[in-house]
Amino acid sequence: MPGALPHAGRADLLARVGSVQQAAYARPIAYQEGRAHGLAAVEVKNGPMRFVAMADKALDVSQFEWRGENLSFLAKPGLNGRNQFDTNGVEAQRSIMGGLFFTCGFENIGAPVATDGAAGRYPAGDFPMHGRIRTTPAEHVCSDARWEGDDYVLEVSGEMRESALFGENLVLRRRIRTTLGSPTLTVEDEVTNEAFRAEPLMWMMHCNIGWPLLDEGAEVIIPSRAVEPRDVDAEADLAHWAEIGAPEANRPEAVFLHTLAADADGRSFAAVINRTLGLGLVIDFSVREFPYFMEWKSLAAGDYVVGLEPANSSVRGRTWHEARGDLHLIEPQAVERKSLSFTVVEGEAALAGVMARRDALLR
């Protein structure tokens, strides 16, 4: 296994360290300056992997490192605590940090919108860019590190509630898990509608790859059966959606909507690989849980990022689904579960394996 520590198990490791925290830990932290002042988080290290889950921001993972190299994207505003512009229309761009992923929804994904609810068929209101759940602080936060046989398990969990008087009452329970030496991080989510009416449940995992994994010559690997540009900027780049070039000043972003191939169990994936580094990051998920998939590609200097975005709705947004009559709803007291995992791959053979997996799904 790439990155696995060279120890047979629990006793073998304990013979070599005083505290297991020499190799791995999960510890609560808080930031002390700037816009991040007071931001509560949990820092986790499993040996070669280090990540930070933000307790004040839906337990989204802000930083993700492998062997000391950052693989995720951090936007210009940097780390943010809760600000007055968290969910005010397009001002969300002043608090969207990127990170390994941020959770979009649950009442909207995509651009901010005001809607009458398609003539009363759906709840009406003003819905901010990518929704409110990403700025919701967690309760009942737990960080744990423990032995399960010869596996040293590192885990973060908590609960977020998106709710309003006379409105929705959606509860997200999240668990993030890895093990010592593993190249894989798993996110398991469960949403319960604790209200007494059906509620919209738009749900997108906005996964963000940044430098140095993202660099000139890197490749986006997606088993895409069909791809549609969102707008004219994406249409101009359509033939090159999988290619990563050098940063360019003021280059417009491009968003592509993909139809993914999947195996018999509905499993699919998306990845970015960098042959120069001999490194890649693979995101695994189910197309039954996430039937939509978007690629966000920004090669603009200073905003250099690729977003890989499994979702249960289109990034075209809430009013697009309302007009079609297929806005996804969760019934009163119902529960929906979703999961995805991030795996670091290293070496020429492993990168070739990612491409072979794509080709096999497309046959």
Rank of each mutant, 00 (worst) to 15 (best):
G125F: 15
L329S: 08
C104L: 05
S339M: 09
D60M: 06
I133E: 06
G68N: 09
H140N: 15
N83V: 12
D303M: 03
A301G: 10
L351T: 02
G181E: 02
P28D: 02
F73A: 05
A311V: 03
P291T: 09
Q84T: 11
F127C: 04
H240Q: 11
V52K: 00
V345D: 00
T319G: 02
I283C: 10
H240G: 02
R358Q: 13
L154R: 03
S341C: 05
L170D: 01
Y304F: 15
A138E: 06
A226M: 03
S341F: 11
L154C: 05
V220C: 12
A138W: 00
I176H: 00
R288H: 15
E199I: 06
V227H: 09
E336A: 12
W241T: 10
G120Q: 04
F106H: 06
N208H: 09
L201Q: 10
R316E: 08
V52Y: 00
L277G: 05
Y31N: 04
L172S: 08
W296R: 12
A270E: 07
G18E: 10
W296M: 10
D265S: 12
R363N: 08
G18Y: 07
V52I: 14
A75R: 12
T276C: 02
I96W: 04
R146N: 02
A8R: 14
P247S: 09
L5G: 07
T192I: 11
A349Q: 13
D237I: 03
T343N: 01
N88E: 15
W211K: 03
A195D: 13
V20K: 04
R230K: 10
A40Q: 15
G347E: 06
A111K: 12
F127S: 03
T135P: 00
V345R: 12
K45L: 03
R318E: 07
L238W: 09
H321T: 05
E168K: 00
P2Y: 04
A300F: 01
R82F: 14
G120N: 06
R161G: 01
D359Q: 12
N83D: 10
F64L: 15
L172K: 11
R27G: 02
T178H: 12
F196M: 06
A356P: 03
G307W: 05
R173N: 14
T103H: 06
R175N: 11
W203E: 07
A145Y: 01
W296E: 09
R173W: 02
F102L: 13
L213T: 02
M294P: 01
A360Y: 04
W203C: 09
H328L: 10
A124P: 13
H130A: 03
V113S: 07
D60H: 12
K45W: 08
S182H: 04
V305I: 14
P137N: 06
Y122R: 00
T115A: 04
S298M: 10
V287F: 10
S286K: 10
E248Q: 15
V345I: 08
D284V: 07
L327E: 04
P48V: 04
R174A: 11
P112R: 03
A11D: 15
V17P: 14
G9P: 00
P310Y: 12
Y25G: 01
A323H: 05
Y31M: 11
Q32E: 13
T192K: 13
L299E: 11
I244M: 11
N83T: 14
Q21V: 05
G89R: 02
S157G: 14
G47R: 02
A114Y: 15
M355N: 01
V305K: 05
A254T: 09
A40I: 01
G158E: 10
I273E: 00
